[in-house]
Amino acid sequence: MTQGRFTGVGLGLRRPHLEQVAGLEGHGVPFWETCPENVVGDGGRFNRLAWSILDRDPVLTHGLAMSVGGFDTWDQEYLRGLEQFLIRTGTPWHSEHLCFTTVDDNCLHELLPIPFTREAVRHTIARAKDLQARLPVPLLLENITYYAELGVPEMAEADFITEVIEGADVGWLLDVNNVYVNSVNFGFDPKEWLSRMPLDRVKQFHIAGHKRFGNLTVDTHGADVIEPVIELMQWTLARLGRHVPVLLERDNHIPDLNLLLAERSRLQLAYDAVLLPSEVRHV
């Protein structure tokens, strides 16, 4: 499987759609993204359906478990299962979040912000390099939404992300919705922010919906993608000038598959409008 197979806009594979997707070969989705934690070590009907799709269609993998910025030792059993999973799915890379999720061996099940400090940069680079050495495919790290800075920052978020990704020599899963949400919550210009970033490291995009709660905008993955976020994706794609797979995330208020396929098509049009000459644009 070559990385060139992964272009256009894919969808996250979610349990409510498994049965329908398993029976649909001509669904038009160029690739699916799946979370190993939902498949490895599981069994039963949904697991069989998931594998029938993963063994048939192109797949990218995206994990929640590794706590890259944390201090706990790696879960060796998880890593063994992950390695087999990555090989079987044929994913060209595996992505994780640039965050911490466990503290003193207690999992908090939330993507928590690493302090923007020199010490945390050094620590996270070492952890990411170590994790990369244990994976059979290249590692990508994803920028997260954050709602508070953990302690007094010693640098800006942009510098923190850049130093970690470049220091660890890993790829970047650029979540444009997270950039947008952070720009709203912290009051900065997302394009200016992106202009400072190592865009040559971008291997994949995430895009999703969000919701405003009082004074805070939260990355809910529970609503349609708004136009400013689509425009930010297009702006970044235009700067890159190359095909990068975009993954539409939907984890809450999951709509019927047909509605999600229509949302994917809307994003595919926006993607094609940037990267394809007009005579070959398609959905």
């Binding site: 201090f71 207690n106 908090l108 928590l112 302090p115 945390a120």
Partner: peptide
């Protein structure tokens, strides 16, 4: 002890306690 770790422990305490 690492400041980063102590900040992470403070966050865990804020969430769980």
């Amino acid at each position: 002890e690492s400041r980063t770790l102590r900040l992470q422990r403070a966050m865990a305490s804020l969430i769980l306690d």
